[in-house]
Design a protein around this nucleic acid. Structure first.
Lengths: 243, 243
DNA sequence: GGGGAGAGATGCCGC
DNA sequence: GCGGCATTTCTCCCC
């Protein structure tokens, strides 16, 4: 056990990526309080101080602390106790390990950043480039002009010269999306002192209640798929069929 | 390399928790599209099929797929290619590994669930039990009666017999919180056909714009700390000082 | 399964 | 740092 403690200690202090499978109890105090009774978990401590505790199932870590966490390890027979503290965030994590099944520390280097496409920005760019897919006769307002009004996805004028606020959602639009659109329309109305402002919600789908609220406020819903996104899904599906 | 492939393969098929540090490229197609050039990463595959790919820094996995993912491993010299498919979600992940630094598969068992306190439910319970901490003279509406109106945190009547909608936030309240309160107040007004409905936002803090919007709508802000939460932070801080 | 909302949300970009 | 908002958000609860 002591040799594992040394390995754990030196792995952390020498800023390696430390991975271990252990039997442990965990408590956390910080943004909330949590406790987790004894069980088998995977613990990951990264060179930047990030700690992740994973159970054998599920997507998310059951406990975690961010970059900048500092560590103290103690041998309190028959347990190894790992104390993790994030001073700036006033957070504290305590891990009591009664077994260490395996432990590895390695030097990993990775400077790459992920490239992502198919997000909401792509969608608003697509509409901005060709607003007629939303409604015939829409003309985009100059983007610098638009910036004055904050976080509106796309701002246009329609064929009757009404201002049109367009809010995009990548997936099903909900009540919060309608509220958001509503805030933008009201902001334009008050800041420009006009009432001739329309609101359009653009998404591949909308919840029934959101649709009702949209109608209440005289806004429109236009069904548009995110750019290329649907095609990728289809591609994926055909590839899956090939398996 | 081939022995590692076998180890990887058998670890996945025998539903062990597989952990490996590798040099790899990653592409993902599904809810979006991502690509990640060659670098060192930690890959975790759980017994339930969950896969997580972590870079040596940062809190979140750079790529991931959920429980139910299925795997195919191929040896395409000089690389090991891992294909992961989640049929139900129409997602696909491709990992091309040119080096496997270490690999471990272990049988972990953990039936424990985490216990958490200090969340928003605690806060609304506290207010429901003693609404006078929000405003003198408030009386809670029967919880079953309240349930008819949906997701309102706390519903009360005030000393003038006005209905009062209370929305709680654990941290700083923002525009979305005010929009939410607004939706609830409007819903009560229309569903009961009355106009004498007030709205109170309860939180330890509020953004300036949210406060402005709150005033516009005639709602009130009451500063209340989440239950016990602040004390825990203080406790933590004093403990940190002791180090 | 859909709808709604919280989360120890996290992360990004803007000012 | 705050503010506003998207996220391959995720997760939970309720209907």
């Amino acid at each position: 056990m002591q040799s594992k403690i040394f390995q754990l200690q030196s792995g952390i202090t020498s800023k390696k990526l430390v991975v271990c499978a252990v039997s442990c109890e965990v408590t956390y105090q910080g943004k909330a309080e949590t406790s987790l009774a004894k069980g088998d978990r995977l613990i990951i401590i990264k060179p930047d101080g990030t700690i992740l505790i994973h159970q054998p199932e599920g997507n998310n870590p059951i406990n975690y602390m961010k970059s900048g966490t500092e560590y103290t390890i103690k041998w309190e027979p028959p347990n190894v106790v790992l104390n993790a503290v994030h001073i700036k965030n006033s957070e504290k994590l305590n891990i009591i390990m009664d077994q260490i099944y395996f432990l590895n520390s390695s030097n990993l280097t990775d400077a790459e950043k992920i490239k992502l496409s198919g997000n909401e920005k792509d969608m608003s760019n697509m509409i901005y480039a060709n607003p007629s897919i939303v409604e015939h006769g829409l003309i985009p307002v100059n983007r610098e002009e638009q910036t004055k009004y904050g976080f509106i996805d796309v701002l246009c004028t329609d064929k009757n010269n009404y201002l049109v606020v367009i809010e995009c959602k990548r997936f099903k639009a909900d009540l919060a999306a309608v509220s958001q659109l509503r805030r933008y329309v009201e902001k334009i109305k008050t800041s420009k002192g006009i009432t001739s402002v329309r609101g359009i919600l653009v998404a591949p789908a909308i919840t029934s209640n959101a649709m009702a609220m949209l109608k209440d406020w005289g806004f429109n819903f236009i069904l548009i798929e995110p750019p290329k996104f649907k095609e990728h899904i289809k591609k994926t599906q055909t590839k899956i069929d090939e398996y």
